[in-house]
């Protein structure tokens, strides 16, 4: 019974958000866009987190900046570019595809191909015709 209560309480509780109520935009569409952009920006102080979930001061400043740019009429891409211009590719949670990152993006495919080659060689060496 106790366990059930705990589970029920966990289900109804909501997680604590880093985004403070006074940061949020009144327009829900704009706020959704801001949240979406924030999830694509890395917190520079904490490094593992995006700025949407970080409680660091700088993350809060950049969240506010994102909302300001959006309110000023910037597109989502323009807001991301604005932050990237100042902090570099590192600030993007998803590194951009460019010559310096081809190996990074291509690595999974390379590993898959290598695995396929090894598997093929192994299968070819199996004695033919029998179990």
């Amino acid at each position: 019974m106790k366990a059930l209560t705990v589970i029920l309480l966990l289900l109804v509780s909501c997680p604590a958000f880093a985004v403070l109520p006074d940061e949020m935009l009144k327009d829900p569409v704009m706020e959704t866009r801001a949240r979406d952009i924030s999830k694509q920006l890395r917190c520079l102080v904490c490094q593992g987190e995006d700025i949407d979930e970080s409680n660091a001061g700088l993350a809060g400043d950049i969240r506010r900046l994102v909302r300001e740019r959006l309110t000023a009429g910037d597109s989502d891409a323009a807001v991301l570019a604005f932050v990237q211009e100042r902090y570099g590719d590192y600030v993007l949670m998803k590194p951009p595809v460019k010559p310096a990152t081809w190996l990074l993006w291509g690595a999974p495919l390379l590993v898959l191909l290598a695995g396929l080659a090894i598997a093929l060689r192994y299968i070819r060496r199996l004695p033919k015709g029998g179990e």
């Binding site: 520079l44 400043d61 950049i62 900046l65 100042r86 902090y87």
Partner: peptide
Amino acid sequence: VEGRVAIDFGVYG
């Protein structure tokens, strides 16, 4: 005081 110029310089600390 708001740290906005710091952001323009790409300062993170």
